[in-house]
Every structure is written in structure tokens, then in C-alpha cells.
Amino acid sequence: MDKKKKRLIFRSVVLAILAGTLVFVLIVNAGSERPSLQEGVEAPNFKLDRLDQEGESIELHDLRGQGVMVNFWATYCEPCKEEMPYMDQLYEEYHDQGIEIVAVSVDRNESVINNFYNRLNLTFPSTHDRNNTVMELYEVVNLPASFFIRPDGTIERIVRGPVTLESLEGYFNEIRPQ
């Protein structure tokens, strides 16, 4: 083969390998910073014991076909406590339309959760993420955080921070089964 052609091929291959490595490293690096949970991704499954119904537990996977709001909260989080009544207010109406709410408390003690629940007479399922495993799975750092999950199990919307009555109604409509 022509020497010049050979040299050009050699250089091209070496440069391509080096450029490819660089691009690969940059992609891996970008991926490590971005959270892996995003809109459109399947929501990771979990199973938590219910506090409001003794002996029962709730598994996300079993809720396929319904729109699900997973809400991470704690009794020491003031904005969390403020949005709870809104959720309860809409729950009755939207539950009949195929919307489920799973409140995941990351508190340490069951009694504080129950106290708060009973005081406000909340009706949607209450669960306790005792070891914060689900919280970590959902990459939640600051409370509150809500995940709105479509009937097919994928995430429609992630809300970091409190919701209002109006915004919550909008989010419910987004994930309501047709």
C-alpha cells in the first residue's frame, strides 16, 4: 500500500481512539453528576409497611394502572406538613378516578408520624421508610419531594419542594388514567 495512505490511516485510527476515549470519559463523568431518576424513567419499585392499616404493606408495582403520587415527608419538615392537607383535600375526589397517594415518611419514630396523621385525620396511605432506603433509592436529599408516576409506572414529573392546591390538581390530571 502507498506509504502516505498507510500513514494517514494510522494517524486517523490513533486520533479516533483517543477522541473516542475522551468522549466516553466525558459522558461517564456527566452521567455521574446527573441524577438517574428523571421524567420518563421507570420509577423504582419498593415495598413499605403501612402505618395506617396494621399488618398491610404497599408495593409500588401493585399500583400499576393507577396514577401514583409518592410523597417523601417528615414531621420535622414544616413545608411537608403544610402540603399534606392539600393532598388530603384532593385525595377523595381523585382516588375514585384512579389516583393513589403514598406518603413516605422518613422519620425515625412511628409514633410521631401517627400523631400527625391522626391529628389531621389524613386518609391516604401512610408508610414509614425506617432506614431511609427508599429515600436514597429515589435520590431525595431535601424534603418534601414528590414523584408523580403514570399508570404505566414511568415518572411523569418530579417536584422538589412543596406543592400548592392548584399545582397538585394539575399534576394529578397529568397522571390520571384515561
Binding site: A74, T75, Y76, E78, V106, D107, R108, N109, S111, V112, N115
Partner: peptide, 21 residues
């Protein structure tokens, strides 16, 4: 036990807990 505040603080709304610890 009527109320349990792991890290007690007093706010406008009365006693509450700052954290779960």
C-alpha cells in the same frame, strides 16, 4: 406520650422538632 420532639425547638406554632435525631 402525647408528644415527642426529638430535637425540641419553639416556633410560632409552639413546640416542634427541628430534626428526627
Amino acid at each position: 406520650v402525647d408528644d415527642w420532639y426529638p430535637e425540641l425547638e419553639f416556633t410560632e406554632n409552639g413546640p416542634s422538632s427541628f430534626s428526627k435525631f
